[in-house]
Amino acid sequence: MKKFVSAACTGLVCLSMAACGSGGGTGGTDSGSESGKKRITLAKENDVISMNTAYATDGMSFEMIAATVDGLEAMDADGNVIPALAESYDLSDDELTYTFHLRDAKWSNGEPVTAQDFVFAWNETVKSPEAEYSYLFTQDGACIKNADEIVYDQKDADLAVKAVDD
């Protein structure tokens, strides 16, 4: 019986290793495309449920969003907050208002990322009943003015965020 189990395990390992082979693929580049841009293919254990940050609720979606989209700030390897799309920010004297200064960034279609993109996305998130993490804008998270009324009381209002320029 031990020999059978050992042989079965060996066969399983061999099949697993064969499945991990490259199979003569393109080696990370899309040589068949006109643009010739590089690509990466990931094999993951689960499907991505949503790439929309307002509706993502699973780890795989969050992992893929984090790999492809920057926020205003990020965390470095030591857990320190560092600039991402925001190259800097100012904090008001009363410490209630943050003004983020965006670096030059572009969407995948070449259009510039603007402050209005953040205002739009944040308002859409708090106003959507399907956005499970909208509470992160409320007093339970970022403490953005009007978020509690929008998320918890379903009031028709806008978050107290604005884009003063691009």
Rank of each mutant, 00 (worst) to 15 (best):
Q154A: 09
F118A: 06
Y135P: 01
T125F: 03
A142W: 02
I144H: 00
T57A: 11
T26V: 06
K37L: 00
D165N: 15
A18N: 05
P129G: 10
S134A: 13
D166T: 09
K145A: 03
D153W: 03
D165A: 14
S108I: 15
Y133S: 07
A8N: 05
D148K: 13
I150D: 04
A84K: 00
I82L: 12
D140A: 07
G110H: 06
S88W: 00
D148H: 13
P83V: 02
A121P: 00
D166C: 04
D153H: 04
K2R: 09
W107M: 12
Y152S: 05
Q154M: 07
G36A: 11
G28L: 05
D140M: 04
V126P: 02
K162T: 12
F137Y: 12
L91G: 01
A131M: 15
G27K: 13
A157V: 02
D158E: 12
A56E: 05
L91A: 03
Y135T: 04
D165Q: 13
Y55W: 04
A115S: 09
S134V: 00
N109K: 13
G79H: 06
K162W: 11
D117H: 10
L136P: 00
S31N: 12
M75Q: 13
S22F: 12
F118I: 08
S31M: 08
T26F: 08
S92F: 02
D78R: 13
